[in-house]
Amino acid sequence: MFRDAALMAGKDLRIEWRSRVTTQQILPFAVLVILLFGMALDPDRGILARASSGLFWIAVLFCSLLAIQRAFTIEAADGGRDALRLSGLDPAGVFLGKAAAIAVQLIALEIVLAMGVVIIYGARITGFPLLLATCLAATAGLAAAGTLYGVLAAGLRVRETLLPILLLPVLAPVLIAATRAFEAALGGVAVEGWPWCGLLAMFALLYLIFGTLAFGTLLEES
């Protein structure tokens, strides 16, 4: 299982390295989103600094949708789905591998976005360990749930429109918890953020386990 996951993740990251879709399209989009928030909300009244946690995670959420779509567009091209089913790869390995590749890309996005929030919104980091832990736990949850719902929509003609309606409500708890934890880490009291971070870890664990078990069904039957 882990060998297959490593093979899959390596392949996905190699494709990203060659195609640069995340770095040249999704990343600029992420930066653009936080700039647009700044234009929509009055930058002088301190709204941005107060709302920076929420805006950060909204931007991450939108970018993760794009990253997930991209991850399954790769497989949909030229019968990749059938090839995956015929490959003999362990479905659990495929799930973990794809989730890991998405997570790596999301982490890179979050680092850039975090710098953007600090520089552009003037957010102040007070709890760095909490910030880091929140990013890791939330990313694991986003990648796990995203991979699970991403493969659902992957074989369908309407995937661009179906994925958001299926995935975003599911990710609402991640948005809530990650934003609360970030508020605590950005100028708040860090201790208040840790329980939220725990919730994120629980969410990630749940979806990782469920995805590992259920991915075979999804890959086989759709």
Partner: peptide, 26 residues
């Protein structure tokens, strides 16, 4: 082994990378 109309190859990867990936997968 099925050789179909769709080849299941990844456009971005080289010939060797593709054959290695699908070979190792099996």
């Amino acid at each position: 082994g099925l050789l179909g109309h769709a080849t299941g190859l990844y456009d971005e990867l080289t010939v060797t990378d593709n054959v290695r990936f699908w070979g190792r997968a099996a």
